[in-house]
C-alpha cells in the first residue's frame, strides 16, 4: 500500500523514524524545493540524490576535494557512460583516490542531502517499496539512528519543536533495550547529561534546570532522543482505572448512562462479546 503525504504533516525526522523502525526497503521521493530521492535497504539509508544532476561519483569526489577541476573535466570528457562503480575502480587503479576516499565522499554526499531535507517544511513525499537505485550506483549503508539524532540537532524550527513537545512537565523513561541503540549513536556531552537524568521521577523541566538548559535546548535534545526511540514519555493518569476488580460488587448502574458506575464485571464483558459476535 502507498506511503505518501506532505512534509507539512510529517517531518523528515518522523519519516526516517518510520522507515528505520519498520526496516523498510525502497525509495522515498520528495518534491521539495528540489526533487530529492533517498533509498533504503532494511531500514538503513543507502543512497541519496538531490536535484537533477551532480549526483554522479565524479561530482561527489570533486565536491569532497578528492578531485580537482581539471581531473573532473577529463573524467567527464572521457568517461562517457562509465558507471559509478566502474569509474571508482578506474580511479583507484589509477591512484587518483583510495577506496576509503570513495566511501567517505559518497557517505558525506548522502548525509549532506538528508540533513538538508530536515529543514524542508513542505513538499509531497512518496515511498515506493522495494524500488532501489540503479545497480551501477555506489551504495553505503548508514544507520538511521545517528542520522536522526544529527538531523534533529540541526533542526532549527522552534515552532515545530514546541508543537511536538508542548508540555515540559512530563517525565521520560528509557524504551525497552535502549542500550542496543545507544551503541550506534553518537551523543553530545549535553545529550549525555540529559540521558543521565532520564528517570520517571524527573520531568523535562527539572532535567533542563539541572543542566542549565533553555526550553529550546531541552526540547531539541529530548525531541532527538524521542525520535531515535531511546526514550518515551511517562504518562500521568488523572483518574483511577475504570475497570477495577475492587468495584466488581457494585450494583448495576442505573440509567441514564452519564451517571453509571464505571464498574463492569467480567461476565458482562463476556455477554457483550457474545452479543457482538451474533450481530
Amino acid at each position: 500500500m502507498a506511503l505518501k503525504g506532505n512534509l507539512r504533516d510529517f517531518s523528515t525526522t518522523q519519516l526516517l523514524n518510520l522507515i528505520n523502525l519498520a526496516r523498510k526497503t525502497g525509495t522515498l521521493s520528495i518534491d521539495g524545493p528540489q526533487p530529492a530521492q533517498l533509498s533504503f535497504r532494511e531500514g538503513k539509508l543507502i543512497y541519496a540524490s538531490l536535484g537533477n544532476g551532480q549526483n554522479d561519483l565524479a561530482h561527489v569526489l570533486f565536491e569532497a576535494g578528492k578531485l580537482n577541476t581539471k581531473q573532473l573535466q577529463i573524467i567527464q570528457s572521457r568517461a562517457g557512460r562509465t558507471s559509478d562503480k566502474q569509474l571508482g575502480h578506474l580511479l583507484i587503479q589509477a591512484g587518483y583516490v583510495t577506496q576509503s576516499d570513495i566511501i567517505q565522499s559518497v557517505r558525506q554526499h548522502v548525509l549532506d542531502i538528508v540533513y538538508k531535507l530536515f529543514t524542508w517544511a513542505d513538499g509531497h513525499f512518496r515511498f515506493d517499496a522495494n524500488r532501489l537505485p540503479e545497480p551501477d550506483r555506489i551504495t553505503i549503508p548508514i544507520d538511521l539512528e545517528s542520522v536522526i539524532m544529527e538531523g534533529s540537532r540541526r533542526l532549527k524550527e522552534w515552532e515545530r519543536l514546541q508543537h511536538e513537545l508542548p508540555n515540559l512537565d512530563v517525565a521520560l523513561r528509557f524504551t525497552e533495550r535502549p542500550d542496543a541503540r545507544l551503541r550506534n549513536i553518537n551523543l553530545t556531552v549535553e545529550e549525555w547529561r540529559v540521558v543521565s537524568f532520564v528517570n520517571p521521577r524527573n520531568n523535562i523541566s527539572q532535567i533542563a534546570r539541572a543542566n542549565n538548559l533553555s526550553d529550546f535546548q531541552i526540547r531539541r535534545i529530548v525531541y532527538g532522543l524521542l525520535q531515535a526511540g531511546l526514550v518515551e514519555f511517562v504518562r500521568q493518569q488523572r483518574t483511577a482505572p475504570v475497570v477495577s476488580k475492587t468495584n466488581s460488587t457494585a450494583p448495576p448502574a442505573p440509567e441514564p448512562v452519564e451517571q453509571q458506575s464505571p464498574s463492569v464485571k467480567r461476565s458482562v464483558v463476556h455477554r457483550l462479546i457474545e452479543r457482538i459476535r451474533n450481530l
Partner: peptide, 22 residues
C-alpha cells in the same frame, strides 16, 4: 489522510489522560 494523523495522536493522548481504560 496522513494530514490527520497528528490530530489523531493528539486525540489519543488526550483520551489516555482521561482514564486508563483499554
Amino acid at each position: 489522510r496522513p494530514e490527520t494523523f497528528r490530530e489523531a495522536k493528539r486525540i489519543l493522548e488526550t483520551f489516555e489522560t482521561y482514564a486508563s481504560t483499554p
